[in-house]
């Protein structure tokens, strides 16, 4: 443990507080800018149709126990029969999403927009913080840490004698970046909950293959064990009513 550093109050007034406020405001700004830039993709009839079929099949799956066995079997046949069931995809007809993506310039454009809206503010903020607030010891974490955290917490100052729990301004920026996520989800609502990492994942799954999910739904429907729930509900209702009458 090195002896305590004395930090100038001016650092608090001109680095710590402004940096935190700027981070919050930039987060809000990013939210609204990305909201403005978001373009709703023009619905493609075939895609919409497939999506709706999947949703209907899913509904049938989750509500299976509330309809009589006969109705369930009819519906299942309607979805999954091998000749003209809705969920049945003839072999070799599924389009390759990768190829489709490259042939459609709009899709690439959209992806680029998404990418840019993610990277540009990040870079700008980092540049801003670097320019105005670099090189300060801005904060002190109120719990001890081991030496390994030095590179993480004291990014930007090269003093090996300073205690690890002191945080440089650039690292304070990173701490803010991760820690403010909760605050944003509170003040901006759910939509913001899809943060950058998740957006990245989504991008990976952009080439969404409808035929694959169709056949997955079909398999799911096929293996369902149907068990009608209503007969037991009558008993339940009876017992509840009896209790009420008593």
């Amino acid at each position: 443990m090195a002896e305590d550093l004395v930090l100038d109050t001016a650092i608090r007034d001109w680095v710590l507080i402004p940096l935190s406020v700027v981070m919050v405001l930039i987060g809000i700004l990013r939210y609204f800018v990305s909201k403005l830039m978001r373009s709703s993709p023009a619905p493609d009839a075939k895609m919409v149709k497939e999506g709706q079929v999947i949703i209907r099949a899913r509904n049938l799956k989750s509500g299976a126990n509330f309809i009589p066995p006969r109705s369930f079997r009819t519906r299942r046949l309607y979805y999954s029969n091998e000749e003209n069931g809705l969920l049945h995809v003839p072999k070799g007809q599924g389009t390759n999403p990768q190829a489709q993506m490259f042939s459609d310039p709009n899709m690439a454009m959209d992806m680029m927009k998404k990418n840019l809206s993610m990277i540009i503010p990040q870079t700008l903020t980092f540049g801003f913080v670097n320019f105005f607030f670099s090189g300060f010891v801005a904060a002190k974490i109120p719990f001890p840490l081991t030496q390994r955290f030095r590179s993480m917490l004291q990014n930007g100052i090269d003093l090996s004698t300073v205690d690890v729990s002191y945080v440089s301004s650039r690292s304070w920026y990173f701490l803010n970046l991760f820690g403010l996520r909760g605050l944003f989800s509170l003040i901006l609502g759910d939509e913001n909950a899809i943060d950058d990492t998740q957006r990245m994942m989504q991008m990976g799954g952009l080439g969404f293959d409808a035929s694959k999910s169709l056949s997955a739904e079909k398999d799911g429907l096929d293996i369902i064990q149907h068990e009608w729930a209503l007969p037991r509900f009558e008993q339940r209702a009876e017992s509840v009513l009896r209790k009420l009458v008593k």
């Binding site: 608090r12 710590l16 935190s20 801005a138 904060a139 002190k140 974490i141 109120p142 945080v167 701490l175 803010n176 991760f178 820690g179 403010l180 996520r181 909760g182 605050l183």
Partner: peptide, 12 residues
């Protein structure tokens, strides 16, 4: 994470 951030902030 939020806790640690605000803890540090207020403490500082």
């Amino acid at each position: 994470m939020s806790f640690v951030l605000f803890w540090t902030f207020a403490y500082d």
